[in-house]
Amino acid sequence: MGIVIAVISGKGGVGKTTAVANVGLGIAQQGKRCIVLDFDIGQRNLDMILGLENRVVYDMIHVMDGDASLQQALIRSKVDNNLYFLAASQSKDKSVLDSEKIEKLVRNLKKEFDFVILDAPAGIESGYEHTIEFADKAIVVVNPEVSSIRDSDRAIGILDSKSQRVKEGKEVGKYLIINRIVPEMVRSGQMLRSEDILDILDIKLLGKVPEDRGVIDASNQGKPVILNKDSLAGAAYKRIASRLCGEDIKMVDIESEGGGLFKKLTGMFK
């Protein structure tokens, strides 16, 4: 039986979909069977980031409504045989999501995959509540910036009240990815430190991802940045995926001065 992880954020544009693509691919690279689902109905994006937009024939709503089988709708990644993708519906409105249908879909996917990763709509949008309902764990993506952090706290609040697991008296594990950290700004006191963000949100840290121009270059090509061996963000996502697979990977202090000798030394141990 696999595990269902919802990737959530308060507001949009914090890099949630990028996180889903890279974490999913990273998990697949560890030899686990992984499926990523785009739940952002009407704003399909994950297909572009994964470079699979031309392969989409059937989407999630087709499967939920019984118009296509899972086998027909699942798309296998070009770069890793362990990674599959199910597209969001582009045309229909978000009200098409319905608890019973989602539960059935998620239950079926759990049987087939080790990891089922849901790319949720932003927390302020409708459709968000449905995506988190059947998640075992949630990954919260924030930027080190006030509006993203404030909104994510509200999204976490909704998770804590609407999740099926919470209603059953169990806990939903919550883990934070801080994305787009600019180390120089943190050092000069112009950007919130990770410790402060964790304090404010009261949540466990899953990983820190530095701002990296390679991310846009990667999405231009539809090749997640984790495939770029020289990318710092890619390396960060690799560590995050390993942690999710149960490996004990030390948190890298990406904010401290990383040039010169330090970089060479860590490079030696790769």
């Binding site: 006191g189 950007m191 404010i200």
Partner: peptide
């Protein structure tokens, strides 16, 4: 620093 102002406000 603006980051500590951010922390207090948040």
């Amino acid at each position: 620093s603006s980051s500590s102002i951010a922390k207090d406000r948040l």
